[in-house]
Design a protein around this nucleic acid. Structure first.
Lengths: 233, 233
DNA sequence: CGCGTAATCTGAACGTGTTCAAAATTGCCT
DNA sequence: AGGCAATTTTGAACACGTTCAGATTACGCG
């Protein structure tokens, strides 16, 4: 993504990243200055900026790793599960586990959510690929459930949105061990399974189609092709 | 809220607020410095900080006015409407109209959404009263629809959440005249009306109860008492 | 009117994220 | 090995949000 070409450069980049993550976890994101990071990585301030264009870009690099780890765990642990509930359980819970000790860091990323132009906005065009990849992960978790076309179309985006909501809740969850997030997750999975069952009823076909049409017009639904592409890369 | 006691102080506070809002709209929030604001208000930098503890606090003051205006319009225009759809239409659309030209400003407020401790976080404890008041507005919009208890309990929080989602979409909507937001809003209202109808079915009573229990355990639902209190103030 | 207290206002200073011109280093080609 | 270009690294500088000690002004009271 950035101009680290040599092996040495790659190594330096890692040193900065690791120093930064350690400090972020120890003191928090805001209390850690780029000068601290550079010093901990044993280099000057300017050098750090050669590898990361901004302080936030380090958090983005972190989130990239989180996403890859999430995809890996879902592929390894969710796919073998027989029931939809179990697969969704892995999909949601593994993400929470990965992020368990880094909630404040995630919160820092949310800063740009309100600025469509910002390259780090969770919802902006610049992060479209990230979103598609995340949706593709949930599509994997849905697996080969027999679903009506429209519902299959809806599922990845809906589960992605639900997972964003759960993350937001997790960020603000002050209960011991994030007990409340765990409970909410379990409840949400149950409801999703029920909702999928209900939505399958032919009686609700026209409603399903309306939902899909509305979300499609809003460009909130990726095409199956987009999801397919995001699955490999 | 802050220590403006004299009439003169109140006046100065307004001058700062107006200068700030004008500049925010002209140049954007980030491109406007507090030095600009102070200069435009005809005073020193430090004086501005006497009235607003931070740059963001000015945006919060703006959002306070937005909320009051929203409550006013819903009381005046939604309450007389005969149908639920019409009342919800006023509730959603008036908010969007009020914010029409200030989307970037709203985006700036979203910055703190990820930090539970921040006094300006949309979801933190510090803004609980704001949330309750906003939910109370939606409760007014629901009006005296005959709803099962659990559904009535759910409605304000659910509509508030939906409205937050619509705002987020609005922020990122680049279509001409925010056409897509308007369409999504119409679609969402239709779906809410249908959902309310369906949810009323006795067949779905146990599902309703499960939803309420889950959200209650997560402390996501305000008590009717909370809503009642927030309605007056 | 004069005094004292509280409110208002000033301007310099601090720490921060970020930029940049230039220096040092590295790796490659002959 | 030598030189050259790209990469890496430096450190100073900038602009910004915020803080604060103190100056100035307004206000109520004897």
């Amino acid at each position: 993504m950035f101009k680290t070409v040599t092996a040495k450069g790659e190594d330096t980049r890692d040193r900065i990243y690791n120093a930064a993550l350690t400090l972020f976890r120890e003191r928090g994101f805001d209390a850690t200055t780029m000068r601290d990071v550079a010093a901990a990585a044993g280099m000057s301030l300017g050098a750090a900026y050669h590898y990361f264009p901004s302080k936030d870009a380090i958090v983005l690099a972190y989130y990239d790793r989180v996403s890859r780890e999430h995809a890996r765990r879902v592929a390894a642990e969710a796919v073998p599960q027989k029931s939809l509930a179990a697969r969704l359980g892995v999909a949601f819970r593994s993400k929470l586990e990965i992020l368990r000790d880094d909630r404040p860091l995630m919160g820092a990323l949310l800063r740009f959510a309100g600025d469509p132009k910002h390259p780090l906005s969770f919802f902006g065009p610049a992060t479209r690929q990230h979103r598609l990849e995340s949706m593709a992960v949930f599509s994997v978790a849905v697996g080969d459930e027999r679903l009506p076309d429209d519902l299959a179309r809806l599922a990845p985006a809906a589960l992605w949105a639900l997972h964003m909501g759960l993350l937001l809740f997790f960020l603000h969850d002050s209960s011991a061990g994030a007990r409340r997030t765990a409970a909410l997750t379990t409840g949400a999975i149950d409801l999703v399974v029920v909702a999928f069952k209900l939505a399958r009823l032919p009686l609700l076909r026209s409603l399903r189609r309306r939902v899909v049409t509305i979300l499609d017009d809003a460009k909130l639904l990726p095409s199956p092709h987009d999801i397919e592409l995001a699955r490999v890369s």
